[in-house]
Amino acid sequence: MHHNSANILKRGSLGTRAQQEQRLGWSLVFPSVVIILVLILYPVLYNTFLSLFAFDVSGNRTFVGLGNYAEVLRDREFRLALGTTLLYVVCTTLGTTVLGVVVALALHRKFPLRSLVRSIVLLPYVAPVISVVFAWQFVFDPVNGIFMEIFHSQLGWFSQRMNIVGDPSTAVWAAIVFSIWKNFPFTYLMVLSRLQAIDQTLYEAAEVDGASPWQQFKAITMPEIYFVVNALILLRVIWNFNKFDEVYLLSSNVKVLSVYTYLKAFTGTMDFGQGSTLAVLQFVLLIGFILFYVKKVLKW
């Protein structure tokens, strides 16, 4: 790399300074651009291409046009997966956002050991999914878990010990709780850094005018964090709509779209045709949502 660029510079000394910059600029981003084009954009196009084929067990393909799409759209399991995904995305986005904002507001105030608490709050976000997922599985363990210990034995909200993670109808709720716990620190962090950037004189002026804390929150804090919170909601929807690891590792019973696609393409008959079709549909749905959100909510 060093030699290359040094040579380019030498040759560039014949041209103007702007030309030198052009050449150096491109030679510096060139490796990154090639990697992104070859290994991200090309695969996305190739995936779309694959979705037009049917694959047999030995991996040979035959062109079927939009046949895979017709089949997937008729598939009841696809619609179930879509429903599960929507439930998962809505609940996790809501929970993550509300909890993140509340924690950010709380930790913005001064109190003893604040910096320690601020570090602790980030731990769920940085811990490897694969480790904490087992801790949560034990939390929901029907026999020994703390969840059933509290809500069945102590409070009696459940009439019997249930296997929440093991039962497909309830596993999605465990996945939602886990996702909120894992990801709210990110929202917290972003909102906190926005709160710290608010001009303190605004609050002082409001206090002089006799505004109550609630009025101050509504008139100053809310408008100041409005944009960052909405951007975070958009990011959270994008990420959680595509989420695989956090769901699949907690319980493969939660068939959100990513998990459904993975199981279709890499287990059983390894149906790459339908798998890539599902991936395309998921992407199209997401792009549709993003465009809608950016236009209607963020009003860009």
Partner: peptide
Amino acid sequence: GVLFVYMFGGILLLIPLYR
């Protein structure tokens, strides 16, 4: 373009990259 790439979930790349 680099920012746009954020929107691609892993699952969209998994099948084509594997192939």
